[in-house]
Design a protein around this nucleic acid. Structure first.
Lengths: 339, 339
DNA sequence: AAACTTGCATAAAACGATTTATGTATGTAC
DNA sequence: GTACATACATAAATCGTTTTATGCAAGTTT
């Protein structure tokens, strides 16, 4: 399995009987070669199976054709494929496809700020950073190095930043609460996470706002994202102690699953005894019994927008921009009063 | 978001008052510098936050610190995060972690043989190719380019290859069949896929062999992997027409899920009316009702072995090698006669 | 005929590292 | 006092491109 020397621009030049400059110009449509010579050189290059070395080209152009993606919540979890969370995988998968559409590719980079990081990390063309926390250190690092990036969700510590894409979290929360209200729920418990990101902030504000407008009691609880199902389970006693609510709206899917289990153990089943909805769709919400009403954040669209924005920035085509993507409410049995 | 010029080896040399050769030697423990000078240079480099440019280094060394992974079955599906298949994601995730342990990183490369591919593809240090088909073109391409690779599962067209890691598929199949037999099953239908890879081949041979040894009828069916649940559903009429079997052993999880659904529609429920087992564990097999007995291929261990082997090869430490990883049978309610 | 364009092609510098080939002192052997 | 190691440091070549700066004809203008 020895490494064969690849055919280089020099080889092509020799075979075509021209200078390497000529070859470079012919293949990149630059310089002042005659169309005739260009054609001939292209032919020779093709026939020799020549492909420019990405490293050498990258060294000159300082563009390597790869963008990085950092999934902040998974950094925190220290687990890059946690069960019950397929949003990030769908997002990353869709982002990979979108980058391919631009002739680029995507590389997942684990935790840019602690421990040794891939040597290539600082040579990438740009970064996507999902769900940054307030004053996110990864964002800070990229900023410091002058590497272009786009965040998915806002960095709360950088209100002036204008390089982000986000889902319309507040709208989604309102939509969900209104749906539950329509189904007859009055007292609605809201369970959020503890990460200090725009998603949690937006949902909490929207919830409190909605409660005030509709004159309903505020019953807001929090559980660390990292605790997952267990975190949801643990909240149930506190929820019930305060009196049985009509509905529970859990922002994360894993909390919702834990809540559902713990409720069932107490003989409480949705939608018979309470309504249940959650803020992110996942395999679990689709296949659980009953299936859980959830917000589809439309990761595919988010990914496309994010990649387009980042690519535009790296190419110097667009100054930057903020883009909101609306979500969709998937109503399932867990929140259907007549279900 | 302008790109700041990074600190280069030249800057460090200037600041330390030495040549760039000295800096390079100090940082890479080469050359004949005095320990004193070495220390001093390292200090200066550190204080300036110097980090060698990966592209420049890669150009010289022709090693970039990144290995590629190609998931062949997902290439065929043209979907890199299909629902109901978490084996590949677990494998890829575990492989990423293992590469980090070696100071390298992992990059997923979509379909190396058709369409435009990332420019970096042929500059990577090596490749992992999962479940190659017979005479796999991706393997052929890597071979041709002299790029080191390790396959997960054997390439049936390359019997002499000695650079693979595989799960002990035949053992796993026997283990499953024996379990079903112990639970009272005699007539067992086996459903395999149509991809021409070692996994399908091994399981089919083991099944036929087991039937012969135990004097049971051979009822082997096939359905394309790409059809997923629908493929499983479609087989059910044929299965029932031949007479109700005691058990069904489906090699893929998605076929199993489809079979389970179609059977249920006919009022047939496992384990009451038949036993059900499947050859790969997934979220679906864990959370379905009833949970389905499945083989855990132990993707984490497979990934570690695969990465270790590949890294050893790229570093010229090991000549190559074949490694088998045994699987584990996760017995769940779908195959428990007294369940 | 000298002075400009135009059209085409190439030489050489640059990107940022690593590695090979050379020095230059200083100390030791004969 | 010449020859020969030894210890330390650097100059220059190299990796494979892209890009900038030159160069040389042939044709045009004055």
């Amino acid at each position: 399995m020895a490494r064969y020397p690849n055919v280089t621009i020099k080889d092509v030049a020799a075979r075509a009987g021209v200078s390497i400059t000529a070859v470079s110009h012919a293949l990149n449509d630059k310089g002042t070669l005659s169309e005739e010579t260009r054609e001939r050189i292209r032919g020779v290059a093709q026939s020799m199976g020549y492909q420019a070395d990405a490293l050498a080209r990258g060294l000159r152009r300082s563009q390597i054709g790869v963008i990085g993606i950092v999934l902040r919540p998974l950094d925190a979890l220290e687990n890059y494929s946690p069960p019950g969370v397929d949003y990030f995988l769908r997002f990353a998968g869709a982002a990979a496809v979108s980058t391919l559409d631009h002739g680029l590719s995507l590389m997942q980079v684990a935790d840019l700020v602690k421990g040794p990081v891939t040597p290539l990390a600082f040579s990438l063309d740009g970064y996507i950073v999902t769900d940054p926390v307030r004053d996110d250190p990864v964002v800070g690092l990229l900023e410091e190095r002058g590497i272009p990036y786009v965040t998915l969700g806002r960095d709360l510590g950088r209100p002036d930043a204008s390089n982000w894409v986000a889902s319309a979290d507040a709208d989604a929360a309102r939509m969900t609460l209104e749906h539950l209200h329509e189904q007859g729920a009055r007292t609605i418990v809201c369970v959020g996470g503890t990460d200090d990101n725009s998603w949690n902030a937006d949902v909490e504000i929207a919830y409190r706002d909605w409660c005030e407008r509709t004159d309903q009691p505020v019953r807001f609880l929090r559980s660390p994202e990292g605790l997952g199902e267990a975190g949801g389970r643990d909240l149930v006693p506190a929820i019930l102690d305060d009196g049985m609510p009509d509905a529970i709206y859990s922002v994360t899917g894993r909390h919702a699953a834990g809540i559902q289990e713990a409720m069932r153990e107490r003989g409480l089943v949705a939608p018979r005894d309470y309504l249940l909805a959650c803020g992110t769709d996942a395999d679990q919400t689709r296949t659980s019994d009953p299936p859980i009403t959830a917000i589809d954040l439309r990761p595919e669209i988010l990914a496309r927008e994010t990649v387009n924005l980042l690519v535009a920035i790296t190419r110097g085509e667009a100054p930057a921009g903020r883009r909101l993507v609306s979500s969709e409410l998937l109503v399932r049995r867990s929140s259907m009063r007549d279900g």
